[in-house]
Amino acid sequence: MGKPNVFDNQRHVHFVTFSCYGNRSHLSRDQCKRILLGALNHELERHRAVCVGFVIMPDHVHVLIWFHETGKLSSFIRDWKRSSSRSIKLFLLDQSQFARTFPKEDPIWQKRFYSFEIMTEEKIEEKLTYMHMNPVKKGLVDNIAEWPWSSARHYDSGKSVGVPIGWPRM
């Protein structure tokens, strides 16, 4: 099986999904979500990227990301997963109830990520709605703005979500 195609030669918004290894719920702990957001902030600044929206679920992540330059997506996701993986694994291995639930040599993330390139504002809004509805559909909250681990509060009421949210210049 070859590598999946990632179209990163134009300045589209990328709707990216990646999952925890073995569909484990590594992100069920708030500290793991905080680590992931901290790493996202770092990589946004380092790669000069714009986060249009995100949601962190217990076993996967969705993000809408836009770059000022082309060809940045793969390195951004690699760096974000790499930096967050180390810290999340250290935290989980320090928690005795989690340390026994997976072999310590297992990775935190699945190797691949999935990207869907978005070319219109209507499609961006559709994907934002889809992402923000994830916690509601999974029964984690009743209202999208109640989930603290997404950009929904930013769009709903302008509140800070721990990550700067912006809009692409398409």
Rank of each mutant, 00 (worst) to 15 (best):
C20L: 10
D79C: 06
R29T: 00
V61D: 03
R48C: 10
H60Q: 03
W80A: 05
K81W: 08
M57Q: 01
C32S: 15
G71F: 04
V61I: 15
F54E: 11
L93V: 01
D30M: 00
S25I: 00
E43M: 02
F7W: 13
S83G: 00
N23L: 07
L40D: 07
S19R: 14
M57V: 02
L37V: 08
L44W: 06
F67Y: 10
G22S: 06
A49L: 03
L64F: 07
G38V: 01
F18K: 05
R34A: 07
R29F: 04
S83R: 06
A39V: 06
G53A: 07
L93A: 05
P58M: 01
F91Y: 15
L90A: 14
K81A: 05
S74P: 01
S19K: 14
K81T: 04
R46I: 00
R24K: 15
R46W: 01
H47P: 00
C20I: 13
I77V: 15
C32V: 11
E69M: 06
H12P: 00
E69R: 13
H42C: 01
S96R: 13
D94R: 12
R34D: 09
S28Y: 03
R86A: 10
I77L: 04
T17R: 12
R24T: 02
I77Y: 02
R82K: 12
V61A: 10
V16G: 12
A49I: 06
L92V: 05
S85E: 12
F67R: 05
F18Y: 15
V63K: 04
K72Q: 15
L64R: 04
H12F: 15
D94T: 05
H42W: 08
C20A: 15
V16Q: 08
T17C: 05
H60W: 06
V6Q: 14
H60T: 06
I35Y: 14
T70D: 12
I65V: 15
F7C: 08
D79T: 08
G71H: 09
S84C: 09
W66L: 02
L36N: 10
Q95R: 14
G53S: 03
P58E: 11
S87Y: 07
Q10I: 04
H68Y: 09
V16R: 01
F76K: 01
C51H: 03
L90D: 11
E45A: 03
F7P: 00
W80N: 02
W80G: 02
N41F: 00
R11K: 14
S25M: 06
C20D: 13
C20H: 13
E45Y: 00
L90E: 14
V13Y: 03
H26T: 08
G71Y: 03
N23C: 04
L36H: 08
F54V: 12
